[in-house]
C-alpha cells in the first residue's frame, strides 16, 4: 500500500526526572502516546516504532523548574500517510444503497459514496445480503468482507477518516482485479494466502485495535517505502524529533 512507509527518526525525548530509573520504559511510553495519531511532523499516523539506538548514556538536563532530561535516540517509524489520488486497500464492513464502508488496516475508516462508485456497479440485494455487482463483469462483486482497492479523495487527519472513490477502472475487489491480471489465479491464491497471514499477524494487534505498548516492531510491508536518507524529528510536548533533511 502506498500509504505505508518506514522512516528513520532521530529524536529527542524529554523525560521527567522521576523517570531516571526507568528510562527505557519512559521512552516507550512517550513514543506510544503518539500511536494512531496524525502528526504534522511525521506527516502521517504513527503505527509502530522500534527504538534502534540510544547513542549516549548522557542526557542533557534542561534548566528551569522542571529539569527534564533530553534523551537522544534513533527509531524506525512505521507511518500511515494516505495522500489524495493514491490507492488504498481495505475490508468492506458495510454496504448500503448509498455507500460502501471500508476499514483500512483495522483502524482507519473509509467511506465511498454512491456518487463515487462507477456506474457499472449496481446495488442489489442477493439472498438478503447487500452487494454491488458489476453489470459488465458479473463476477466482479463487492460485498461485506471483500478486500477492495480504492482511490483516496481526502483524508480527515483528526479522526483518520478517508473519503474514497471506485471511479477508476483499476479499483474494486482486489481478488477480482488480480484474477483479471496476467498472473490470474496464481496471484489470487497469493493474495488469499497473504490475507490469511495478515489476519493472523494482526490478531490482537492492529486489526484487533489493541496494539499494545510492548508491540513495537512490525515487519516491513511489501510496498512500503524506506526513507533512509531523511531523518525525522518530532516535536510534540515532551517528545521532540528534529527533522534532518
Amino acid at each position: 500500500m502506498d500509504a505505508l512507509k518506514v522512516s528513520e527518526g532521530k529524536m529527542v525525548v524529554y523525560l521527567h526526572p522521576s523517570k531516571t530509573k526507568v528510562i527505557s520504559e519512559s521512552i516507550k511510553r512517550e513514543l506510544s502516546s503518539h500511536l494512531f495519531k496524525f502528526s504534522d511532523t511525521f506527516d502521517g499516523v504513527l503505527l509502530a516504532y522500534e527504538v534502534v539506538e540510544v547513542p549516549s548514556k548522557l542526557a542533557k538536563i534542561l534548566s528551569g523548574l522542571d529539569p527534564y532530561l533530553a534523551v537522544r535516540l534513533k527509531a524506525n517509524l512505521l507511518l500511515f500517510a494516505p495522500k489524495p489520488d493514491t490507492f488504498l486497500e481495505g475490508k468492506v464492513v458495510k454496504i448500503a444503497r448509498e455507500s460502501i464502508h471500508v476499514v483500512i488496516l483495522g483502524f482507519s475508516a473509509a467511506v465511498i459514496t454512491e456518487e463515487d462508485i462507477r456506474d457499472e456497479f449496481k446495488f442489489k440485494i442477493k439472498n438478503g445480503q447487500e452487494i454491488f455487482r458489476s453489470t459488465s463483469q458479473k463476477r466482479h462483486v463487492i460485498k461485506v468482507g471483500t478486500m477492495v482497492r480504492f482511490l483516496v479523495k481526502s483524508f480527515d487527519e483528526e479522526i483518520l477518516h478517508v473519503s474514497g472513490s471506485l471511479i477508476p477502472a483499476s479499483t474494486g475487489s482486489i481478488c477480482w482485479l488480480s484474477k483479471n491480471s496476467e498472473e490470474a489465479s496464481r496471484n489470487c491464491r497469493k493474495q488469499r494466502e497473504s490475507e490469511g497471514r495478515r489476519e493472523e499477524r494482526s490478531t490482537g494487534t492492529v486489526d484487533g485495535g489493541a496494539l499494545s505498548d510492548e508491540y513495537h516492531v512490525l515487519k516491513k510491508p511489501r510496498k512500503q517505502k524506506v526513507h533512509e536518507g531523511n531523518t525525522t524529528k518530532l516535536d510534540s510536548g515532551r517528545a521532540e524529533m528534529v527533522v534532518n533533511q
Binding site: V93, K94, V103, S108, I159, L160
Partner: peptide
Amino acid sequence: TDLIPLAPSR
C-alpha cells in the same frame, strides 16, 4: 465502532 474503529477512543 464497527464502521469507525477509532470512534471509541473519542
